[in-house]
Write a protein that binds this DNA or RNA. Sequence first.
DNA 1: GGCAGAAATGATCGACGTTCAAATCGTCGC
DNA 2: GCGACGATTTGAACGTCGATCATTTCTGCC
Lengths: 186, 186
Amino acid sequence: MALDAASSLIAAEGLAGFSMRKVAQAMGYTVGNLYLLFSNQDDLLAEVSLRTADAMHAYLETQAAKGKTPLDRLQAISYGYIAFAQKHSFSWRLMFEHRLPPEQWNHPGLDAKQKALFEFVEGHLEPLLPDASPKELRAAATALWSSVHGLCVLASTGKLNWSGLKDARPLSDLIVRVFVAGLKQE
Amino acid sequence: MALDAASSLIAAEGLAGFSMRKVAQAMGYTVGNLYLLFSNQDDLLAEVSLRTADAMHAYLETQAAKGKTPLDRLQAISYGYIAFAQKHSFSWRLMFEHRLPPEQWNHPGLDAKQKALFEFVEGHLEPLLPDASPKELRAAATALWSSVHGLCVLASTGKLNWSGLKDARPLSDLIVRVFVAGLKQE
DNA sequence: GGCAGAAATGATCGACGTTCAAATCGTCGC
DNA sequence: GCGACGATTTGAACGTCGATCATTTCTGCC
């Protein structure tokens, strides 16, 4: 329930408006108590990120199921990613803006989530590349998903506003379509 | 020289280790003085980001000049981007991790730099797409550069470590090559 | 009721961004 | 040399933050 309060606060105010005191107040406890549940603020935020990652992954699964062809599914996943990032903007951004102190960069949970997400994409890319080796497939999935992620990042931070491109979805379509077409040709 | 001190501090300790007091101490002044030069911390950091953007742009120009063919040049630019992000990791990350308060999202300087960077890529993509309309060209350049950026972001935050892919450059090559190949086919 | 162990508290610390009255400095006329 | 006045610089003060931990409060059991 500390996690509930923290997630709500992040969703409402973002990382900038977040504080341990606000979380404590929202859950009806005092600050000291939070440090009995989490070792520090980073720890709490990492748990919130984990939650968001789970929710996003589940959402992407439902979106992927809507596609008829493999290419449809990849595009549905990309759309879902963009939609999730826009709808839960603060929570989504937390996953990337909250940088753990480097000594625990290899957070076991977060690493596993990252891996699961990439493998999820890999699974949907595989039918389109029947002749690819596992290594090639992994590289292709990583490259494709990094691309979609980059688009999402720039769109969600307003760094594409300078051009008239206010909707990221056509660009997402372009990336997936062109990337898959180029890959088949390799 | 306030900017020099601030840039050095960011380069050395990153956004997490940054404080107005440290900047003041590094330049031999006291904190109050900084607020006569910059309206607040966000303002100072925005100026540091601007500097970094300029330095990066200049560096990418030199890298682009090394390529013989248009495709070579695009790949050289991508390599340069990755190299810059790795070499000046903290400074580069500042440009994206430092999120301005939303009321001044349209910082005139930063927007101009963003635009210049994308148009720079656009200029190098153009020879490869002689038949594209200006709108198609812009979309293609935006998509391509977002992709390279996404790869760079994930690589620089260690979020690709789960797979064995420790070097981002092969993936950069893959993205540029496959993307251009797919585009030609559109 | 009394008591031990668990649970929760909140005063306290140092550091942060930011402000602004006060102190210091530089440069004139005399 | 002196005084004076504007420009420059200071650093104490305010409120908030993450984090700590001695103290208090609660809970279940005899």
